[in-house]
Design a protein around this nucleic acid. Structure first.
Lengths: 339, 339
DNA sequence: TTGAAAGCGTTACCAG
DNA sequence: CTGGTAACGCTTTCAA
C-alpha cells in the first residue's frame, strides 16, 4: 500500500497536523519543519488521498458535464473549453450523456446527491420534465449552469451563443447577394436552439420585408442524415428557394450531399449557410459559409461561471452570458440565378 | 445539510450498520427491517455519501481517460463507447487531455496516486518518456490500458483496430481498380498508427509487386489542415500517383479540399482512400472510400478490459485485442485515367 | 509554531 | 439477523 499521512509524520518526526499544514498551508509552518517534511514527502513520493481530504473538506473538486449524446463530435470543442478552465482550477471533469445518466429511472442528480461532484454543467436543453423539476431543488439549482443549450422555462444561469444575431448575419448576407426566396432547414422541433435560430431568421427577413416560405422542411435533428433526408423534400418543393439557411453545419453538409446526389449544385443552384462553424465546414466542397460560434470559449465561460457558483458567488438564476458570433463567408453562397 | 446514515438509523430505529447493510447487501437483512429502512430512505430521499463510502471501500468507482486533444472530434465516438460500458458498471468517466494532465510538470498519475480514480485508459501513444516510465510502476501498470493508440515499446494491454488489415483492404481495392502508382499520405512521424498503417500499405503493395514512390508527403499530423497542405506538395510531384491512401479521414478530406482548390478532381484525377470512417466521410463530396474502424466498440472493449483489470483479473501485460475493420467503398475511388 | 484529538459518513468485523 | 465499534486518511479547531 501507499504511505499515509501518519507515515510521513512519523518519518519526519512531527505530528500529522503539521504534515497536513505543510501540504495545504505551507505558510503556517516554520521554514525548517516545512523543509524537513517536504524532504520526506518527496523522497517517498507521498500524495494526499483525495477521498479522505474531500470527505473532510466536504467537496469533490469535480464537476459533471451532461450532453445529449457523447458520440456527437460537436461537443468536443466545448469539452476542451470546459476542461481547460476546470483543470486550471484543480477541478476534475466527468462526462456522461443524458441517456446513461437517466437510465433505469436514475436521477440526474445522483452524482450531486451522492457528493461525487460539486456541480453540473448541462448541455442538454431537452431534458424530460422529471429531470428538470429535480434540478430546481433549492440546494441543487445553485450548482448547475447550462451551456450552449438551455431550458426554455429558464431558472438557471447559462452561457450561449448569440443565435439570433447569427441568423441576422446569415440573412443579411444572402439578401445582400440578391436572394429573396430563402428557406430555413429546421432542427429538431422544440429544441431551444432551433426555436431561437428560426426566430432569428424570421425577424431578419421581416426587416427586409421578406418572409419564409409556408412549407417547412427539416424538423428531425441536427444531424448529417437529417440534412440529407431534407434534400429529398427540398427537391420536390413546388417553387424552389434560391438559398437555404440551415439550423446547423451538420444539417448543411448532409443537405449539400443530398442535393449533390440529385444533381443540384451548391452554390450555383442553391446557396447554403450553416451554423456552428464546425471544423470540417472549411474543408467540404464547396467550403461552407456559416455562422461561427466559439465553442471552446463557450465551454470555458460555462466552467468559470460554475466554479464561481460553487465558490458561493451569488448569481441571479436567470443570468445569461451571450457570446458573439460571426459570419464566415466561404464558397457555398453566391448571387442567385448564376447558372 | 443532507441526512447521513446516522439520521436514517435513528429515524428507522436500527443501527447504522443495519442501514448500511440494507443499502449495500439487502439480502443480509430481514425483509421487515429492510422495508422499514427503505421506507425512511425513500421518504427522505437519502443517498449514501460516495466520498465516505469510497474512502472506506478504498476505491473510487471512477476512471480517467486521457486523450491527446479533447477538442479533436475523432474521440467522441470512443468516449461514447467507454461511457456506455463504464456507466453500466457504475463507474464514472473522467476525461482530460495529455497537455492539461502534464501541465506544470504534473504527473500523469496524480489521479491514480491520489486515489481519485481506479484506473486509466490512455488514448495517447505519444506520451513523453517521463510519463511512460511512470506508468510502468508495478502498482500502476496493472491499472492502465491503452485504446486506439498504444506504446511502441509495449508493456500494457491495449485495444486497437486492425490497422494493417485495413490498409491491405485499401491497397487491394485500388489495385483491383487498376491503380499501380499509389502514394501514402502520412500522419505524424513516429505515431504508432502511422507506422502501422504505412507498414500495412507497404506490405500489401509488395504482395502485388508494387512499391510506394520514394517521395514522401504528409508527416505533420492527422488533421484537415495537414491534408490540405499536403495537396500542395502532391501537385508539384514530378510523376503524380493515380491514387492516394491517407493515414486518416481528416487528412483525406483536407487533401481533397486542397486538390479541389487547385483544380484537381477526386476521383477523376486522383482516387482517395481514408482511414477511420468518421461520420462525415459518407457526406463529403464525393463520399469518401475508407476503412471503417468501430470506435464505439473500441471504447467499450477498452472499458471492459480495464474494469476486469481493476477487479483483479490477471491479464498479460502485452495482451492486445485487435478489432476488425472493413472497407467502405464510396465515391472517392475509381479506375485510374478516367478523364 | 506545534500537537492532540475530534470528526467527515461509511463499511465490515466481531459478538451476541 | 442485528448492533457496537473500529477503522478509512485527512483537516481543523483548540490548547499549549
Amino acid at each position: 500500500m501507499s504511505l499515509s499521512i501518519k507515515d510521513i509524520a512519523r518519518l519526519s518526526g512531527v505530528s500529522t497536523a503539521t504534515v497536513s499544514r505543510t501540504l495545504s498551508h505551507p505558510e503556517r509552518v516554520s521554514e525548517t519543519t516545512r523543509e524537513a517534511v517536504m524532504a520526506v514527502v518527496d523522497q517517498h513520493g507521498y500524495r494526499v488521498n483525495s477521498m479522505a481530504r474531500n470527505l473532510r473538506r466536504q467537496r469533490a473538486d469535480s464537476v459533471l458535464a451532461i450532453v445529449p449524446d457523447l458520440g456527437n463530435p460537436f461537443f468536443s470543442a466545448i469539452f476542451a473549453g470546459l476542461q481547460e478552465t476546470f483543470s486550471a482550477q484543480g477541478t476534475d471533469l466527468l462526462v456522461t450523456d443524458s441517456r446513461s445518466a437517466l437510465r433505469g429511472g436514475q436521477s440526474l442528480l445522483s452524482h450531486l446527491r451522492e457528493a461525487r461532484v460539486d456541480g453540473l454543467v448541462c448541455l442538454d436543453g431537452g431534458l424530460p420534465q422529471a429531470a428538470r423539476a429535480e434540478l430546481k431543488a433549492p440546494d441543487i439549482a445553485s450548482r448547475v449552469v447550462f451551456a450552449c443549450e438551455w431550458l426554455v422555462e429558464g431558472g438557471f444561469p447559462s452561457v450561449r451563443s448569440d443565435n439570433r444575431a447569427g441568423m441576422r448575419l446569415a440573412v443579411d448576407h444572402l439578401v445582400e447577394l440578391g436572394h429573396r426566396d430563402i428557406a430555413y432547414l429546421a432542427g429538431p422541433e422544440g429544441n431551444v436552439l432551433d426555436t431561437e435560430r428560426r426566430a432569428g431568421v424570421v425577424d431578419a427577413m421581416a426587416a427586409h420585408g421578406l418572409a419564409l416560405p409556408a412549407v417547412q422542411f427539416g424538423r428531425n435533428d441536427f444531424s448529417l442524415e437529417a440534412g440529407r433526408a431534407a434534400a429529398e423534400d427540398f427537391i420536390s418543393l413546388p417553387a424552389r428557394p434560391t438559398a437555404v439557411i440551415c439550423a446547423s453545419d451538420q444539417l448543411a453538409v448532409g443537405f449539400a450531399s443530398g442535393l449533390h446526389a440529385r444533381g443540384l449544385r451548391v452554390p450555383d443552384d442553391v446557396s447554403l449557410v450553416g451554423f456552428d462553424d464546425i471544423q470540417t465546414a472549411e474543408f467540404v466542397i464547396p467550403p461552407l459559409t456559416t455562422i461561427r460560434q466559439d465553442r471552446m470559449r463557450l465551454g470555458a465561460q460555462a466552467a468559470g461561471l460554475l466554479l464561481r457558483q460553487i465558490a458561493g458567488a451569488a448569481c441571479p438564476a436567470d443570468k445569461v452570458i451571450t457570446l458573439p458570433v460571426s459570419l464566415q463567408i466561404r464558397g457555398s453562397t453566391c448571387p442567385p440565378g448564376r447558372d
